[in-house]
Design a protein around this nucleic acid. Structure first.
Lengths: 242, 242
DNA sequence: ACCTGAACACCGTTCAAGT
DNA sequence: ACCTGAACACCGTTCAAGT
């Protein structure tokens, strides 16, 4: 070992991700670079590439860490408190890391932890007796609010410059479906149902419909509150009383 | 003029912004660099800095261009169709530029075009007879949906690394208030009202309250639809019939 | 198996200089 | 008033080499 070199444990993927998370907490996401992170770990930049394919994967991994901090479903009796508690737990997790929201909004990759969360989230509505149809649209409407902030969900409009995903051979696609079905049964159920829906655009989601659905739920709610003479003071009183 | 140099009109701020917008349309926001933009304009990178202070300001300017494409309020009789039409117009504007949503989510600067839009948006609820109190929370709840996508609004948690805004002398602050009051009366009214509200955290917005307000409006709506046996097919029929 | 060094093709932005 | 050239301090990532 070089004189003056710091003793440090061997790097591994998890350590790299954790270091990245706390470095981003400190200096912000836009200042986080592969080189800066390597510095922090007392290592040459290229050493990171043994544990993470590139910066994109680093960011995806960081998001995974945060999503992993969200509490599992509480097993509450009614769907409504279950959903509510889960969302507020997600919100607390996101709030611990100021950069996390922006990172999640930018990254569109659905990593395993993200899919797990979505799947169990769908499960809460299903347990409440929601039809798959309504569950589907409700998931769109709650969107990023599911994460403790607000964001359009399932939104993966191809961005210019993004490489088209290479077509997989059919047998590979089938194998992937099998895996999906085993691990994310609820996501699959929703996806299957919406494929058969007689939507205006045929298969896939009708973005415009989803957007207007959520908008109208909000507008309906606003209208009702307005008619009822809602005030924040009364709402706060009710909250602290209940 | 150099032989082979292209004849081009003199640069100005608007031309730079417009070029940036259509270049981003073409190559995506993450590939847009000052150098690439300069190239596109047949100019050396540093020439841009006469018209735009830095890249941040370029991005803010690009957002301004897009926000300027949103239709003015339709002057509809009821607040609800006015709001609805405006949001859908915003959505169309944003959809014309795939990068715009991400840019707006990243940029937190409230530029004049953004403030104009927010102010007239508040005005639509006011015209519908909403209390300032309800208007305030409703604006939070609709959040980025106001822009044709979903986003937490008024959210300017200071990011690490961001320079604290230099304190202005009191007379300068007073002058700014005067200008604000003249140009954005509705924003000011909401801001004043929420400052006096007996919120849990005192002055400023209670983020948690706003978040739960919006969440509960959505959950109330979901509950109602669930109880009523809502189906997307019926909703579509009603939409096309009406 | 893991880490290093040097190199490549990029960034945003400064400063002093040109017309 | 507007544009240029050269330079600085950064990026992410490659490749071939070390232990």
């Amino acid at each position: 070992m070089e004189p003056g070199a710091e003793r440090r444990p061997r790097l591994n993927r998890d350590g790299v991700l954790r270091a990245a998370v706390s470095l981003a907490d400190e200096i912000g996401i836009e200042a986080l670079s592969m080189r800066r992170l390597a510095d922090e770990l007392g290592v040459v930049p290229m050493a990171l590439y043994k544990h993470v394919a590139n910066k994109e994967e680093l960011l995806d991994g960081m998001v995974e860490v945060i999503v992993g901090e969200i509490d599992p479903p509480s097993g509450s009796a009614d769907w409504r408190t279950a959903v509510r508690e889960r969302v507020l737990s997600a919100r607390r997790a996101l709030r611990r890391h100021a950069w996390a929201r922006q990172a999640m909004e930018t990254r569109t990759t659905k990593t395993p932890a993200v899919l797990d969360y979505m799947d169990s989230f769908i499960g809460m509505f299903q347990a409440g007796g929601f039809s798959i149809d309504l569950t589907h649209h409700v998931m769109h409407a709650i969107g990023g609010r599911m994460w403790g902030f607000t964001q359009e969900l399932f939104d993966d409009a191809p961005r210019p410059g993004a490489a088209p995903s290479p077509a997989l051979p059919p047998e590979a696609q089938a194998a992937m479906m099998q895996q999906m079905a085993a691990r994310y049964p609820n996501i699959l159920a929703v996806a299957m149902a919406s494929a058969h829906e007689d939507s205006a655009v045929g298969q896939g989601c009708d973005d415009q419909f989803e957007f207007e659905f959520a908008l109208d739920v909000l507008l309906d709610g606003f209208e009702r509150l307005h008619e009822q003479g809602w005030t924040s003071a009364a709402a706060r009183r009710r909250a602290t009383a209940g």
